[in-house]
Amino acid sequence: MTRPLGIILAGGQATRMGGGDKGLLTLGAQTLLDHVIARLAPQVDAMALNANGDPARFDGFGLPVLPDSIAGFPGPLAGVLAGLDWAAGQGAKTIVTVAADTPFFPRDLVARLQAAADGQTHPLVLAATEGEAQTRSKSRSGLIRHPTFGLWPVALREDLRDALQSGLKKVVLWTEAQNGREAVFDASVADPFFNVNTPEDLARAEAMV
């Protein structure tokens, strides 16, 4: 199966970290973004970064920087749409999104998302976990979804644009309407989608590194 393009979602406002770009925080000897790029690069054909504001602050990473095309910080779906628009210009059929603040996501993320999409006309799959003790929003199957980690089809970008312009913000409402699927990852030992939201999370990530 053809490898997708990779989109790193860094468009959030990082309010619990005091603002700024979480991806530029230092983890070990590198930034969070360095860790994310290193994990994603072997799994995709090319990468871009979804972020708003002055793109020059990301010059050192050598990636295209894609701003949201929908104003007002409408959430991660705006970053997905920006990635789909960029991928369409590259002639790609699909993208995979990952979050810029999640440095330990699976090294086989893309392969497992693609496997879960087998038989779909328009591959649309979110990562999900089972075995977590944490209480989060669960899917109808009881799994915990991670909506910033997904496989998305370029063919549905205009439908997504229409949904966003109509005010939709919740990722799973759109993916369920499109008969999206879930790729299940085990989180009984550790959460593979652990993300850095607070200074305490960053300290925990340092220990994991």
Rank of each mutant, 00 (worst) to 15 (best):
L5H: 14
L5A: 14
G6A: 14
G6S: 10
G6C: 12
G6K: 10
I8W: 04
I8F: 04
L9Y: 00
L9K: 03
A10R: 01
G12K: 01
G12Y: 06
G12D: 15
Q13C: 08
Q13L: 15
A14M: 14
T15W: 12
R16W: 02
G18E: 05
G19Y: 08
G20Y: 09
D21L: 00
G23D: 00
G23V: 01
G23S: 10
L24E: 00
L25M: 11
T26H: 11
L27Y: 07
L27G: 05
L27D: 08
L27F: 10
G28V: 11
G28K: 10
A29G: 12
Q30A: 12
T31I: 04
L32D: 00
L32R: 02
D34T: 07
H35D: 04
V36Y: 00
I37S: 01
I37T: 05
I37Y: 00
I37W: 01
R39Y: 03
R39L: 10
L40K: 02
A41D: 10
Q43F: 12
Q43L: 08
V44K: 13
V44C: 12
V44L: 11
D45H: 15
D45Q: 15
A46D: 15
M47A: 07
A48L: 13
L49R: 06
N50P: 01
A51M: 07
N52W: 05
N52I: 07
G53I: 10
D54C: 07
D54R: 05
P55V: 06
A56E: 13
R57D: 00
F58H: 13
F58T: 09
D59H: 11
D59T: 14
D59I: 03
G60Y: 02
F61T: 12
G62R: 00
L63Q: 11
P64D: 05
P64T: 06
V65R: 01
V65S: 13
D68T: 05
D68R: 10
D68C: 09
S69H: 12
G72P: 13
G72A: 14
G72Q: 06
F73V: 07
P74N: 10
G75T: 12
